[in-house]
Design a protein around this nucleic acid. Sequence first.
DNA 1: TTGAATCGGTACTGAAGTGGTACTATTATA
DNA 2: TATAATAGTACCACTTCAGTACCGATTCAA
Lengths: 166, 166
Amino acid sequence: MLSLTRKTDYALVALAMLGQRRALGLGPVSARVVAEQYNLPQPLLMNVLKELGQARIVTSTRGATGGYELAHDPAQVSVLDVITAIEGPVRLAQCCDGLPVMGQGCAVEAASCPAKGAVKHLHRRLVGLLESVSLQDLLAESEESETGGCQCCPALTIAESISRLK
Amino acid sequence: MLSLTRKTDYALVALAMLGQRRALGLGPVSARVVAEQYNLPQPLLMNVLKELGQARIVTSTRGATGGYELAHDPAQVSVLDVITAIEGPVRLAQCCDGLPVMGQGCAVEAASCPAKGAVKHLHRRLVGLLESVSLQDLLAESEESETGGCQCCPALTIAESISRLK
DNA sequence: TTGAATCGGTACTGAAGTGGTACTATTATA
DNA sequence: TATAATAGTACCACTTCAGTACCGATTCAA
């Protein structure tokens, strides 16, 4: 399925909260608080934050007043980084994607695959798209929709919505 | 996972072959021939072609000399059409995607979701990307890589590869 | 020093989706 | 009438996902 897993959803939600806290100059926040804030299953969220920590996207401090906080400026972390940390490298197709795993699990010989070129291009454009959106954009879009200025743009054309994020 | 299923891979491969045959003015081709050509599991490919037929992307003719052929001009069929036919509608996230199913399966209240705006934008851009690539592009890219003119562009930057497809 | 709160690691389980197969019915041609 | 093809349905093995559980390590505060 061409979709993110729920764990990635939770990661983006948690990172958005960490970004807001960073902007306010607040310290680390525990997984429990984040889970309660957004009604997420706490053990699962702890696993997600753990993986984000291993990917150096967040830093963790143990102990009674410990928790998680963003490791970098939100503008320096892309959505692709988050997805890669949680789900592993993005691979649009099993084969023909220009990655080291190329050909694995695909019955079509790479040399004779008639869809190879286009799939590779699609993959690159998808990766480019995910790289171009940062946590900073995530926070900005969130505020925009909260203030009613956007309301998720039901009337915007795709081209307009693309240009807004660029 | 942010990837296409193998069935979609097979669909793209089969559609590329049907597109080539259409360009040559040839008639319908059976699932067996396509499966043998690219070493695909025949029963599964038949299921895939069946689904493409239900989505009116290919037309099928039964009988001894029957088979499948493209229902429309390759330029009029987008990769998004193919993905939707095989995998159902693209939903980047469980929630916050602006679709009728919004909110289903997501624990975060839509109104309080801090990632809502950005996820919706990403979803729209992803859909736009998939809509912008047609079967015609698929065929063109395939020829390009076969003649060695592209070789899947290992040296191209992402921006360059995007501009090539536009 | 003790306890509470937190993260870190591993392992496990039920559910769902994916990949693939099998069988029968239907249609069309020779 | 035999053959070759699609159409439909059902089924199963396997993998991944979503979520839970447990235990240990760390830090802080009383």
